[in-house]
Design a protein around this nucleic acid. Sequence first.
DNA 1: AGAACGATCGACT
DNA 2: GTCGATCGTTCTA
Length: 205
Amino acid sequence: MARLSYDFYDGDTIEIARNLLGKIVVRVTGGGTLLAGRLTETEAYIGRCDKACHAYGYRRTARTAPLFLPPGHAYIYLIYGMYHCLNFVTEPEGEPAAVLIRGMEAIAGADFMWRARYGDKPVTPARQRNFLNGPGKICRALCLGKAENGLDLTGDALFVCDSPADIGLPELPPRRETVRAAPRIGIDYAEEARDFPWRFTLEPA
DNA sequence: AGAACGATCGACT
DNA sequence: GTCGATCGTTCTA
């Protein structure tokens, strides 16, 4: 199946965060279930210059080690003791940086993801609105946790492709959309980096 | 060894 | 809008 290669991730993190919007994240679970979502929200984190990045100033610890892997790997960490966040490692190897995956629309395996998020709870408008609009929710839906930290994004368990056709699904109807840049969420401690407009969302034009 | 702190979420006023 | 849950990671000593 066609997927984005190493080269896509080997570059400027902000550019990649924008370029990821509209792309299809594909996850194949341990049980072989195909899950996919269209990316609608991302954030850039760059260790070299960004106090909000876990690897700010090239800080290298057990947790940040995956950020020093070559571009095109997954960085997944536990936050607030109960949620995981998925990132794609970017920049040339040795530059710790990544794109946080914050939002997507279900493309494949929606029923499986719903169950992973809500169990048997019934469908409600509120749950539909809040289905996949946060980093912790996405990891829950895609069954991503500590075990998947460091995964190679050119492998078969987790990757990104340009369109649903790349995984044998029908193309989506074209939509008029624009990219909005805004300050990132939940990093008020990060001093000047708090205001960097490195959060990108895909919105109706 | 102990303390402080989250790149969040869902329940609730 | 506010607030508590919950625990691994990191830092200090």
